[in-house]
Design a protein around this nucleic acid. Structure first.
Lengths: 165, 165, 165, 165
DNA sequence: TATGAATGAGCATTCATTCAT
DNA sequence: AATGAATGAATGCTCATTCAT
């Protein structure tokens, strides 16, 4: 299904498209290997248009990552898994259904570089909160989510990645 | 401790230096963010010298990664942890003592791209073999190692990274 | 007369400029000795701009060469020389008036290398057709054109090269 | 037949080998596309050894070219063709039997660049003298030789190039 | 809102050449 | 006589970003 080449979208809609389409591409290839040209092509727009919605590629990626982490945490909270086994099952579902886990992994991969460090740390904290319901084993729960994110980023849960058409 | 600027090393020694110094830098910054110029500078040599030992940056990184995975697997086998807790303790030690785990993580991160895919798959297999002693929970053991590698790459086991001066 | 440093040309016009200016430079120095930087400078543009019109230096040169051969053949057909003497006079004129003959020579010089071989062979065929009006002595006619091209490339008919300012 | 890897040849013998082997390679690929590494490999020696016999790649090529032109002229004189047809037959033979004609072509191709210009002019003069026996039609004779050289360089007489194994 | 045209800075890589041995 | 080790200078090419429209 090719993204339609409709022009002149309302700003917010275009932004949403960019976050969604860019999210998938960043998830698959990572930050460095994803070019602004790739994203523009996938969105059916010209490269400069990206810069009307984000001030830089880094800021763009951070926006994508923050939204992905947000969605992910909400779903974790909503599901409220009782134990590690339930959490792992949930994460398997997540990795297959959407790119969020992989995006988180890509963010963590960049987490050592200054512009991403803070966002990566925030993400880790947010994950920690989201699985706080697993109080007793919280660190293990958090570690499990992060590990799943990183493995999804590495494509090792890719066998069932339905979102990466 | 800055790498000394001694010139005219025998080929094998220079190669060893390149693998070691390059390994650290790749571990810290990942493949894409590491420039051949960075490595050359860190080794006290000129860029073209790298190409007298490796035919391309990719081949260089793969050599670094393969050697790191090899060392890592040997240590895993030697330690032969009895259970997951022991394995996790061991991996914490590993992450602190050397860049191998982080290098593995960087390799897995690139694992989707053709030139790295095979090496990444080989690494996963080798890890699987190395922790086969944890028979009963083998998949869990393997997953734990891979996750630790990715977390090391992301710097999340970095509290005590003695190797990253 | 220096190429004006007007910026922001429509794509087609810029391409035309690149083909024309690049043609002259390739004609004078040959493929290997002509750098993309030389051409960019002569056009008053930055190097990357070249790559917005051609995917590689080779493809660029081939485009230049094909257009030159095309023009040359058309002129040969239009002139329809009756005998070898007339052909030789015509070629002398050609060598003086435009770079086409020299460009053909530069192409033939590269004709052994794979990316150029086919274009070189096509050029030879096209020349053969263009002088087919000299039916009776066709091979001699073709050979004369090719030889003239090579001599023009070598600058041996350069005494009157008005195009090489 | 691979050039033997005998070391420590007397200087003059090595020089002769370099001129002969290098001559063939220059003939096939031209000056720019022939690397000093290619020649060294083909001679079974290390690159720096070339510089013990020639001060630069250019000087090396010029030596090769001068010797080739010398041999060629001697053979032209010895054969003393009576008319253009005889000359052309002779040149066909030449192109098939040895690289001299092609080397001359490669030299002429570089003839515009200062370090080669003089040698190219000398070559043209020498050819002129060599075919002076064809007094009556001298210019035509000279032109024929030069054209044949260029065509040989371009590989268009290659059907029978026995020397280019 | 959108883009066609353009680029500065940087990239991996090549190559003729040097020098100590 | 020969070479193993090394490099300065360039080369073709990429990419995030800008600007005029």
């Amino acid at each position: 299904m090719v993204t339609q080449r409709r022009r002149r979208l309302p700003a917010e809609e275009r932004r949403r498209q960019l976050v969604e389409v860019g999210g998938r591409i960043f998830a698959i290839h990572g930050f460095s290997r994803t070019g602004t040209a790739d994203i523009a092509r996938a969105c059916g727009i010209a490269e400069p248009t990206i810069y009307r919605h984000f001030t830089s590629k880094e800021e763009y990626f951070l926006a994508v990552a923050r939204e992905a982490v947000g969605r992910l945490c909400e779903r974790l909270k909503a599901a409220a898994p009782r134990d590690i086994e339930a959490l792992q099952a949930l994460l398997g579902e997540e990795a297959a259904q959407g790119p969020e886990l992989a995006i988180l992994g890509r963010l963590l991969h960049e987490g050592r570089e200054p512009p991403f460090r803070e966002a990566a740390e925030d993400a880790v904290k947010a994950i920690g909160d989201a699985v706080a319901s697993l109080r007793k084993m919280a660190p293990l729960g958090e570690a499990t989510v992060l590990a799943a994110a990183l493995r999804a980023a590495a494509g090792m849960l890719a066998g069932e990645e339905k979102w990466a058409a």
